[in-house]
Design a binder for these strands. Sequence first.
DNA 1: CAATACTGCGATCGATGTTCGCAGTTTCTA
DNA 2: TAGAAACTGCGAACATCGATCGCAGTATTG
Lengths: 229, 229
Amino acid sequence: MPDEPGTVWDRPERGARGPAPVRTRAQITAVAVALADAEGLAAVSMRRVAAELGTGPASLYRYVGGRDDLVDLMIDAVAGEIDLSGPLAGDPVEDLAVLAMHTKDAQLRHPWMLDVPPEPERLGPCAIDYLEHGLRALEPAESMTGQAKMETIAVMNGLASLFARTELQERSSPTERQAAYAAHLTQVVAEGRHPLLAGLVARQVPGPHEDHQALFERLIRRVLAGLIG
Amino acid sequence: MPDEPGTVWDRPERGARGPAPVRTRAQITAVAVALADAEGLAAVSMRRVAAELGTGPASLYRYVGGRDDLVDLMIDAVAGEIDLSGPLAGDPVEDLAVLAMHTKDAQLRHPWMLDVPPEPERLGPCAIDYLEHGLRALEPAESMTGQAKMETIAVMNGLASLFARTELQERSSPTERQAAYAAHLTQVVAEGRHPLLAGLVARQVPGPHEDHQALFERLIRRVLAGLIG
DNA sequence: CAATACTGCGATCGATGTTCGCAGTTTCTA
DNA sequence: TAGAAACTGCGAACATCGATCGCAGTATTG
């Protein structure tokens, strides 16, 4: 693929002249997603993906403008996993809450999503459908401006990411780095300044925490109710 | 600096035996922050920072365990810029709203902060003070659990980042990539599916947008009010 | 049957984070 | 006071990354 065109989505999947490409974008995307699921986003290097496909790194550039494009494909693949077919109840808060939970679930399924730098506007086709769906859910809220609606959806997404992150972090055993920081925190707190923090650090371990699902549901409804109407 | 110890903050600034270090961590941090302010976080490479200090890359590793540690130092330097000296009003919503605005301002001053991968728990001394301050603001809310308080602060931070991002994005001219995606969006929307999105894209340009400050204030108060008490 | 436009890919470039090892310097110990 | 020990500065080098170039081979066009 040469240079000029803008996004991956503008580039044609194959040229009209030469031999048929051996691979598909969908194929490459699937491999990349699987790799990221298994070993994290950092493992998705051109070389690694190419090796997984049994070819050299340079070949991938026939399908994709670069690593960023590949990540865009991956993101939209995950966006496509989110089910938008369910009927809307007609209550913006309720409908957006459901959408938020689906979003969070997708991110739990693909933890590397949280490592994607959140530059906005990388909207592939599925992400566009997603956005439209969110706006449809917000249609009953006639008093809101378009900007307010977009911000509401953005906040909803941000909350989904936030909770996905804490849920994942708690689920997995901490990194060496995280452990070191935890140790450092307890040590600093032991010095006596930061009494409030001390109270929390002490009570950190016990209790299996409130059920995540329920907690997230309640919180997102509260926030959305505060933003809508 | 050898390997074993945990965080940067645990490592002593200098050893007790050899010659006095030529440079300071604070010095290095300042250079790195200035560089990131001017050219973005990606410009903060070991080589670049070293060059800015007039030395070789390897020298930096006497002061810092690696690039991650350097970023940790940078983050905490910014956290230290946030003014926590103002007296608390006693109203959690009000006090956290003020804190949120200070946080957002700091991120506007250092846009690269939004490019730092948001792994949690990288709390340097200033960040710890910040957290304690937030908890102090939440002290009147006696009905909240510790976990709920932490989540409230996390949400507050997330919103600050969210709005800082949109504000910065709007302020700066779009990247080539962003422009390409914007063009692609209008093109997709022109196909007719996505009527709601079409309505928004059409009205995108006009209007200098509502004053950011006011909008953010109102929104964060709403959200916080929904979460507290 | 050319001419054309494409595909696959080995070789390679420049940049990155990081490590090694050595020479020089300061402090501690006996 | 002498020597060992611990540290600092840093040139050289390694592994890995994204990306480009150019050539050989292949399908389509006219």
